[in-house]
Amino acid sequence: MPAPKSLDGRRIGLVGLGRRGLAVARKLTDEGARLHVWTQNTEKAAALGEAHPLIEVEPCPRDVARYTEATLIAVNSDEALERVVFDPEEDRYGVLHGTPPDGLIVDIGETAPATTRSFADRVRQSGRIWLDAPVTETALGGTISIGGTDMALARIWPFLNALGTKVLHAGPVGSGQAIRTCGAAIHGQMVQALAEGLALAAASGVEADALLAALADSAVGGAVLSESGRRMADREFRAGRTVREQAELANQALELARSAGIELTGLANNADHWQTLLDGSQGDLNISSLIIEIAESRKGSQ
């Protein structure tokens, strides 16, 4: 008899089969869950459904929600999220229309905190329950932060637990997306601080490698220093998080700060840098390519 798996026999809905959706589908089916899926690209969905005995493809988002314990939504924009949840069109009803009273809808994408909160309100008015639980690349197999009520989290917990090593209740709805946004704001500014530090070192006649080696075990050491620092030293800007993604994340963070009524000068300056790189057609390079602009600005001012 094969060893029992944590999600044997449980049914979960999944909307969106991009990179995030596929990774989530793989982890959940590995744990034995039965998936009901829908994605815009019907051919892709059909191929997946044929290939996997635990995956059933549904004709519209509504049907994904009908026979499942909850629906996870992994789409790539706030607009797409609104469509797949609320769409009233005859040929494509949204998830909300199939979700039973007290049913769960979980935003696992990278939605703006204000958007996820406003969708949560609309869903609540229909007697359904919303959670936000962004499953980013680092959250997959790492820590997933959830916004919503404790009881709703308890219900979705076994599924999220299969996706991350830690599943933390961050606070009321919107908290998961807010944490993700704060994390991205911090990360962006760490990359900028690192680029400036490397530029300062170079201007002082210090090799990048010497600086990185010296700081590896210091208070500023860590994943950003070792990964982005290495990339900056080697001018290796393929793969990983792109400038385009970071520009969008920085804008989400600025919007969050604006709606919270606080002014963050470091963040504003940092966001300007990503926008400059984006305008300079560096959008598809890794965020570590900020070093180019910062190193150039030094030469420019000489």
Binding site: R10, D150, M151, A154, R155, W157, P158, H169
Partner: peptide
């Protein structure tokens, strides 16, 4: 399977 639902919170 649904043990966590017995725990409403901290």
């Amino acid at each position: 399977e649904r043990f966590q639902e017995m725990i409403p919170g901290a």
